[in-house]
């Protein structure tokens, strides 16, 4: 009876949700539709207001043909995303696994690993990049020396060099992910481990057969989080390009809208792809 009464007034839910619904319509849905509309127009700001003239797909054609840098930025972005996201996920999982052991100073280590989330704004990272502090010089020298002497193939060494050059940037992106993994690891029932150990499973087997499947949903969450955070970070050249085009007289708001929509669709496609692949993987392996 009590329970039913509490649930009896679903209309009140809309009262609580009203601010969000209004906000969504005004600040998200309307801008989405409007920028989609603008992307097919040439937009100019006059003293009487905004003037738009329909140009059909011209903005989109311009992006892929005339605008030389946009496609370049997109490819670089895509390559870096492909490299960085798996590294960030693996790194943060390893660190979370280490922190999940019975160790002293766990709090101190967590504080250190989370610190970048607090201070890593665009301008701060820019300063650090300019000073060349985003890599550890001595490590890099050793690796370059090794690579040169071994004459490793171009593709692999390219990847390695990128990773080494940006090792601190990559690590600095993983603060939130470490904590999410750590929280998930601590929720795994200790009894499952004990049962596995009694059955004679080794630590290695337990990791692949117990730990990994239990935190798999968090791997998906972290991957999506990483992709989103990476794509909207203020040092990303694509979003900088969109900003520049906004205030460029020749191209303006219409073209910038088209660029932002192309970018949005690409990110959405990547996310859907990642989600579908990871989901089917988990079903095949762990179902």
């Amino acid at each position: 009876m009590k329970k039913r009464q509490f649930k009896m007034k679903p209309s009140f839910a809309y009262f609580f949700l009203a601010p969000w619904i209004i906000g969504f319509l005004a600040f998200t849905a309307f801008p989405l539709v409007y920028s989609f509309y603008l992307s097919f127009h040439q937009v100019s700001l006059t003293t009487e207001g905004i003037r738009t003239s329909f140009v059909s797909l011209e903005n989109f054609q311009y992006a892929f043909t005339v605008d030389g840098v946009f496609i370049g930025y997109l490819t670089v972005f895509f390559r870096e995303l492909l490299l960085s996201v798996p590294i960030i996920i693996v790194f943060s999982l390893i660190i979370a696994l280490l922190l999940n052991q019975k160790i002293r100073f766990r709090g101190l280590f967590r504080t250190i690993f989370f610190l970048p989330v607090i201070i890593a704004s665009g301008p701060v990272l820019k300063e650090l990049q300019d000073m060349g502090v985003t890599t550890i010089p001595s490590i890099e020298e050793v690796f370059i020396y090794n690579l040169a002497s071994r004459n490793a193939d171009q593709f692999l060494s390219g990847i390695l060099l990128y990773v080494l050059d940006n090792i601190i940037m990559i690590l600095w992106y993983s603060g939130v992910q470490i904590l999410i993994f750590l929280a998930a690891l601590q929720k795994i029932d200790r009894q499952i481990y004990e049962a596995a150990m009694i059955d004679g499973a080794s630590t290695w087997e337990i990791f692949w057969k117990v730990t990994l499947p239990s935190i798999f949903p968090m791997i998906v969450v972290n991957t999506i989080y990483t992709i989103v955070a990476y794509s909207i970070f203020s040092l990303n050249p694509i979003i900088e390009h969109i900003k520049i085009q906004m205030f460029e007289l020749e191209t303006g708001f219409g073209y910038a809208s088209a660029l932002s929509w192309i970018y949005f669709v690409i990110i959405a496609l990547i996310l859907v792809l990642v989600f579908v692949i990871m989901n089917s993987q988990s079903k095949r392996r762990y179902a």
């Binding site: 801008p31 989405l32 920028s35 603008l38 979003i239 969109i242 932002s260 929509w261 970018y263 949005f264």
Partner: peptide, 17 residues
Amino acid sequence: MTFIIPPQVTLIPRYLV
């Protein structure tokens, strides 16, 4: 879903308004 919408898409209309 609003989490994955890049702010750049809503930026221009918001700026105009």
